[in-house]
Structures are given as structure tokens and as C-alpha cells.
Design a protein around this nucleic acid. Sequence first.
DNA 1: ATAACATACTTGATGCATCTTTTTTGACGT
DNA 2: ACGTCAAAAAAGATGCATCAAGTATGTTAT
Lengths: 226, 226
Amino acid sequence: MAEFTTLEHENLNSVVYGALCDALMQGRFQPGDRLKIRDLAEQFGTSVTPIRDAILRLANDEAITFRSPRDIRVAGLSENRYREIRAIRVRLEGFAAETAAQVATSADIQALEQILKENEAAIADGDRLRGTQLNQAFHFRLPQIAGLPVLTTILRRLWLQMGPHISDAYLAGGRAMIDHHYPVVEALKRHDPAAASMAIVDDILLGGKPILERIGAVVPGAERSA
Amino acid sequence: MAEFTTLEHENLNSVVYGALCDALMQGRFQPGDRLKIRDLAEQFGTSVTPIRDAILRLANDEAITFRSPRDIRVAGLSENRYREIRAIRVRLEGFAAETAAQVATSADIQALEQILKENEAAIADGDRLRGTQLNQAFHFRLPQIAGLPVLTTILRRLWLQMGPHISDAYLAGGRAMIDHHYPVVEALKRHDPAAASMAIVDDILLGGKPILERIGAVVPGAERSA
DNA sequence: ATAACATACTTGATGCATCTTTTTTGACGT
DNA sequence: ACGTCAAAAAAGATGCATCAAGTATGTTAT
């Protein structure tokens, strides 16, 4: 008997959740932005119920917080919290890169190079949104190549929390954010786990600097969720 | 101006979510168990709305899955998925132990020793439930000592997925599950990060063996969520 | 003009009715 | 006995009304 992946229920709440996740990861929200269930319901053309459901999931992801009982806002990020996220990413994405280096096929390599190529084009065009998306696509491709779905889910949550902050810093970082991706691909080609891990760690640490510089100033409410 | 942690809204949905989380982590559900919103609403004495909210959050945590659009079940765990979770725990809990070893105070050490003492008593009494709880308490105490709240949240989600499986295996593992905790405390006393990390990794890998043996047989539906 | 209070509005939480789809069940025919 | 099909019951999804609590507004008295 074959294995089936449980198929996606395309519930309204999932549609809304996905749309809000995309918006967060693309930096289309600022930390501290207020979300109103009824307003979103009107924008999405649904009742409030699916919006509440999506908001609840996002709050569970700690991507948005309830500042007070009736005040839903995009989560802030304290410097300490960002440093912790970065430290976790170093371990988790390092692990993903190691594993990917061991199992990557030539098709996997080609896919990564394609992402890099498009990313170069996006940077050349000054398309900041697309650049952000492609940078994320590169990072998410590694655990996918490695066959680590749990890790992918964890990373997605971390990016959800970083989303409102990276967009600001992406411009400042500029082309440097993609430079460190090339050594990763080279390491994967050579099936060199240690080099792949070190390369992605470099990318995380150096690419994160401009984010860290910005964060000190922002921080509206950088705490728990419901 | 002082820092306030955003206070807990004790919503009904949070109460239900907390209760279901506890039940899952204590192994009071079996993988594949079916959850019915209306039944739970009756048990909790609420309407279906807060139950739906809690279920949605649990589904977001991938602790329960929607096998089909109207069939909510406690998530299964494939062997591969469990191995991945274990590999992630090794890195994350290793990191937590390292950090904890650097910053642990004598009060922290005493708290850990108190947990171990109570855990010994629980084992002596054959109190399997309390033993499971105290084992988890030990593991969660390390990132707490280390001051890593994001990591704690990630671990909590992983334990949520393991919960329905560890209870079965805990008996089989028996006292071995706690033996490896002592070297951790010793390493923290010596402020020896490398030793602390190695000790907790040993605990994860060896303690996980009985779980792994059981898992091969179970696996009703070990996939995605909504 | 300002401060204090009352009123109206905003907004998330909760409960509930209804809808659609799925699952069960049982009768019927082979 | 077994398989098929249809009717009924079950169950989650969606929408919506209401509630309580917080916020804004406007009026009045000093």
C-alpha cells in the first residue's frame, strides 16, 4: 500500500494564513503594526471566523502578539531575541547544509544555481521584494534537499518572526547577502558537509549584521504571544 | 520605565490548548486517536469555538493532523520523522546545555538536583506519569537556565509531537532515562559546556532507543497538518 | 480653556445556527 | 454472505449575533 501525504485542505483559514505568512516574510508589515480582524475580513472578503483562525495560528507562531486583550500587533524583536534566533539558525541551517552536502543530486545543485542566477538579476534590477524572496528560497532549499521537513517548519517560524525586520535591513546589506551563497553551492558540489555548514553559518552571521544594527532602535513590543 | 512581560490572556482557548498540550505531553493520547470538537466542548463545558481555536493551534504545531476534512487525529510519527526530531534535539538541547553550563547559578543547580531527587522517588513509586513529567521538566530546565525562550518554544513543539509515543516507551526505558541526567548536572557544576552538551546528547540518543523500537509498529498517519 | 465625566464606538471572545461534505448504516439485490 | 447504493447522522467550516472591555469622543462644569 502506497504512502500518501495528507492532502491540503484548502480551508479559508489556510488561505488567509498563507497570505499573511507571505506578507510577513516579505516584510510587508512593520513591527508593531496593528491587525484588525474585521478589517482583514473585509479585505479578504470572508467573515471574521477564518481571519480569527489565521490570526490565532500566527499568534501561536509568535509572529504576532496580543499587546492587550483587544490589540493585535505584529511582534517586535528584541536584540536578545534576535541573537537567540540567529544562534538557533546557525545550528539548524548548519545541520541542514551538512546533510544536504551528503545527499545533493546534480538536479538539486542546478536548482540552487538557478535561484542564485535569478537573485543576481533581482539585485541588478533593484527588485528588493524579489531579492528577499529568493534569498529565503535559497535558505529553505537546503533543508528541503536534505529531506528535513521538521527543520523546515521550525525555520519557517523563525523567518516569520524575522520578516518584518529583514526587509528594512536588506537594502543596507545589499549584495553582500548573496555573496556567501556561492561557497555553499561549491561545498555541495564537492559533497563537503563541513564546508557547506561553515559557508551557511558565515552567511547567517555576516548577513545578520545589518539586521542587528537596525533592531536596537525599533522594539515596540518584543514579547510573548497568547 | 520597567519592562513588563505581556500578561497572559487567560482565554478559554488558551486554557483548552494548555490542557490538551499537557495531555499530549503526558502520553494520555495515543497516536491516531480521534478528537471530536463537539465531544471536547462538552467535556470542557464550553462552546465549540474555543475548542476549535485550540485544535487549530495544535494542528499548527503539527501535534494533531486532519487526516481528512472532517477527521481530526493525534499525529503519528514515522521513524524518519522521529530520527529527524532526535537529530534536531541533539543540536538544540546541546546548545542549551552548553549555554546553561556557562551561566548556571547554584540555585539553578539545586533546582535541577531537586528535580532529579523527585524523579528518583517517582521511579521508586512506579509513578510513570510523574516520572515522565519530571524527565520533561529536567530537559526544559536547561534552556530556561540558559535564558533561551525561543529554543524552549521549539522544544515544546517537538515534545508535543513525541508525547503520544514516549509514554509507551518510558516503561521499557525504565531507570536508564534518568541515569544520563547526573553527568549533566555535574558538568554544569564544573561550568564545562562541552561535557554538558555531550551528556545531554547521550541522554537523548540512548533514551530515545526504546521509542525508536516501538515506532516501527505504530504509524497510523505520520504526515502534514492543515 | 481645561479637566472630568458620560456616552457612543471599537474590537476581540464566545456561543450558536446553518451549510456542505463525509461517514456510517442498513436495506436490497446478487 | 457479500457488495452496492441510498438515506440519515455526524462533523468541521463558515457566518453572524451578542457580550464585555477598552478607547475615543463630546459635553459640561469650573
